[in-house]
Simulated assay, not measured.
Amino acid sequence: KEEVKAPKVNPVTDRDEVITGNGMKGAEVSAKVNGTEIGKSKVDEEGNFEIKIAKQKADTKISVTQTVDGEESPAAEVVVNPSKAATTHVFKKGYWESYGLILNGQVKMEGVDLSKKESVVKTLELVDESGKVAAAIPTVNTNWYTPGQYDGYQVTLSEKTMAAVQAGTYKLQVNVVVGNGEATIVPIAVENQKMFGIQAYQDAFLDIPTNNVGLKTIETMSKDGQAMLKVTTPDKPMMGLISEGQSKNGRFVNGYVLNTDYNFSEKHQKNVVIEDKSGKVVKELKNIHTWDLTSWNLGISGLDMKSGFQVIIPNEYQNTSLYQYKLQVVTGEEEALQLEVALDKII
C-alpha cells in the first residue's frame, strides 16, 4: 500500500482566495487554520488540487492534509505571505528653486493602506549603469492627490545631495516601505506625451529645463521609458538660474555665474549679447544690473556673491528657437573681455 505523504502546497499570499498544490490522485484535501477547516477539495487526475478559501491575513499558518481511503497524511504547513502590491508611479510636477531641483510624484499601491504618514517611507534612488544605488534621497510624504492617503511625495535634489554624485547617467526609482513590510521598488516612468507646463512648473519630466546644482549640471532624459538624470561637471564658466518671469518690458532673468576664478569684487561691467542661431550679433544690452547675493541665502558652495545679475530680454528677442544669449564680463573703458558665459537656462 502506498504511503500517504503530506501534499505539496504552493506559496499563499494575503490576496489569494485559492490554495493550489499537488497530491495523490483522488485524495481528499483539507486546509485548516488553528484546527478549523477553511476549505476542502479533491486531487484531480493530473495530481493537482485547488482549495477555495477566504483571504487570510499575512503570517497566518495554514495546515493542508490529504486523505486516501480514510488515512490522513501529515500536514504540510504554509505561512501566508504579504502580497506585493500592484504599484504605479505618476509624475506630477518638476521645477527648479534656487537651492535645487524639486520633484513631485505619486506612488499608487493597490490595496495598501497609506493613511498613516509616519508608517510610509519613500526614498528617491539614483541607480547607476551597473545597477548600484549611487544616492538615496529622503522624500516628504504628501496627501495632495488622494484624500487621506499619503501616496504622494516631494523630494529636493540639493547641492549637498548631489555633491557626492559622480558625473554619469542615473535611472530614477522610488523605494517604498510601508510599516514593517518589505521594500517595494517603483521605477519612475516617462510618459510619451508632453503636457502643458504652467510657468516654470513642468507636468512632463522631460520638459524640466537643464540647470545647475552647485557645480553639477542636471539634465532630464529617458531610456527605455524610464526617467533618468544626466549629471555632468562642466569645465567652463556656467550660468545658474535663480528665477525668471514675464514683465511689461520683456522677460526678466535673475542668475549668477559659477565655475570661474574671476573676482567679481573687482570693478567690472556685465553686458548681454543676443545672437541669431548663426552667431550674428543682433542686439547688445550694456551694463545690466549686478546683484549682490549676500542676503539671498542661496547656500551655493563657491558662489561669488557679486556674480549675480538681472537681465531683461526684450519681447522681440525672446524666441529661444531663433536667438541665443551670452553674458560678457568686461573691464575698463575699452571693455576688455574677462569671461563669457552662455545664458543657456533661459526658457
Rank of each mutant, 00 (worst) to 15 (best):
E2K: 08
K5R: 13
A6F: 03
A6M: 07
A6S: 07
P7W: 02
P7T: 05
V9E: 00
D16K: 03
E17Q: 13
G21V: 11
K25H: 14
K32I: 00
N34M: 10
G39I: 03
S41P: 01
D44W: 10
N48V: 12
Q56I: 07
A58K: 12
V64G: 01
T67H: 07
G70Y: 06
E77I: 07
E77W: 05
N81W: 04
N81V: 10
P82T: 02
K84H: 10
A85Q: 10
T87F: 00
T87I: 01
T88N: 08
H89Y: 10
G94C: 03
Y95H: 03
W96H: 12
S98Q: 06
S98E: 09
G100Q: 08
L101V: 14
L103H: 00
L103S: 04
G105C: 08
K108T: 13
M109C: 07
E110L: 07
G111C: 02
D113G: 14
K116Q: 15
V120S: 14
K122M: 09
S130I: 00
V133S: 13
A134P: 00
A136Q: 04
A136M: 02
P138S: 08
N141G: 09
N141T: 04
Y145E: 12
P147A: 11
Q149H: 01
Q149D: 04
S158C: 05
K160F: 06
M162W: 07
A167M: 04
Y170E: 07
L172T: 09
G179C: 05
G181I: 08
P187N: 12
E191M: 11
K194H: 15
G197I: 06
Y201P: 00
A204K: 09
F205P: 03
D207W: 02
I208F: 03
P209E: 01
N211G: 15
V213N: 09
V213F: 02
G214C: 04
G214Q: 05
K216G: 14
M221K: 04
G225T: 04
Q226K: 13
M228T: 11
T232H: 07
D235R: 09
P237L: 15
M239T: 10
I242R: 13
G245P: 01
F252R: 05
F252Y: 15
F252C: 04
V253E: 12
N254W: 15
Y256Q: 09
V257L: 01
L258G: 14
T260I: 07
F264D: 04
E266V: 06
V272H: 11
V272T: 09
D276K: 02
S278Y: 05
G279Y: 13
K280M: 12
E284W: 10
I288T: 02
T290H: 09
W291H: 12
S295K: 08
L298F: 12
L298S: 11
G302H: 11
S307N: 09
G308T: 08
V311E: 14
I313H: 10
E316D: 10
Q318W: 09
Q328P: 06
V330A: 09
E334M: 10
E334H: 14
L337T: 15
A342M: 10
A342E: 15
I346N: 12
I347L: 15
